[in-house]
């Protein structure tokens, strides 16, 4: 479903602020697979998801989604294949528009938007039914502005919007990180239910080791713009949070070693 071939991305190349965010990533994801992405801050998780969604063009490499070479497709064109939920609950919805209007926008993801009424037809009944499944009581507030909702409610709605039309690829970037524990739990459960129901091919970034081991059928770990670990099958199922923490600690030690070795060399030769 997703085929990422040796992509690289360097921000601010040639300046003092140069960051090599992606340094040759290869990743093939099978249809229906639910991949959890973890890694320390700045390891390139968001950059990887952005590269797939088309927030920028990669410097090198190629990205295929569902057999289409989308490497040079602009973001809005890729949206016909990709559904997204962002970390920030404010990013995924239009605050001044009503819940119904936001959902109506999502019902045309990747399609032509014509001059027919946005809220016409049987859409409203469908909205009532679907929003009810969230169990948040939002079905009675379809005409309220989304800006009046809590972060958790907005993320749940953004999730509905991203999956209203079944996306070929669902990208979730720490979509529960900004929520209180209860809402986070609620949203991750809804996520799991929708992904399982529609058998969505999914990439989910998370900082929660608990989420990382509980959800998904595959787990990749990023470090400094590279994939350094890839668990799947029984191996993934056996993972415990402690294993991941131990692996993080290992990586951190290796980094420290790198730093002290560099310092040693610098002192000796410079």
């Amino acid at each position: 479903m997703l085929d990422v071939q040796n992509i690289r991305k360097t921000f601010n190349a040639g300046t003092a602020n140069e960051v090599r965010s992606l340094q040759g990533i290869n990743l093939k994801i099978e249809e229906g697979s639910f991949v959890v992405v973890i890694g320390s801050n700045g390891s390139g998780k968001s950059t990887l998801l952005n590269a797939v969604a088309g927030g920028f063009y990669v410097d090198e490499g190629r990205i295929d989604i569902d057999g289409h070479d989308v490497t040079r497709w602009p973001e809005h064109q890729r949206a016909s294949l990709v559904g997204r939920v962002f970390q920030n609950p404010f990013s995924g919805t239009a605050p001044h528009l009503s819940i119904a209007e936001n959902l109506a926008l999502a019902s045309r993801r990747g399609k032509v938007r014509g001059l027919t009424p946005a809220l016409g037809g049987g859409l409203r009944q469908q909205m009532l039914d679907t929003v009810k499944t969230l169990g948040m009581g939002l079905e009675s507030r379809l005409d309220n502005a989304i800006g009046s909702l809590s972060g958790g409610q907005r993320q749940a709605l953004t999730l509905l919007m991203a999956t209203w039309l079944k996306p070929r690829m669902l990208l979730l970037d720490e979509h529960t990180a900004a929520l209180d524990p209860r809402s986070a739990e609620q949203v991750i459960r809804i996520t799991d239910r929708i992904v399982a129901r529609d058998r969505l091919t999914t990439m989910m970034v998370t900082h929660s080791m608990q989420q990382a081991v509980t959800y998904g059928d595959r787990l990749v770990m990023l470090h400094r713009g590279k994939i350094i670990q890839d668990f799947s099958g029984a191996e993934k199922r056996r993972l415990r949070p402690e294993d991941l923490l131990a692996r993080f600690e290992e990586v951190r030690r290796a980094d420290l070693l790198d730093v002290s070795a560099a310092e040693l060399l610098r002192r000796r030769y410079v």
Binding site: T93, P95, R108, M161
Partner: peptide
């Protein structure tokens, strides 16, 4: 009436949140 059509709603959303409207497939 126009601002209540699919196109018009997308226009209003663009002013509100351009990031979101790109993610939903409109330039």
């Amino acid at each position: 009436a126009f601002f209540r059509t699919h196109l018009g709603t997308a226009m209003r959303a663009t002013g509100d949140n351009p990031q979101m409207i790109r993610a939903l497939g409109a330039s």
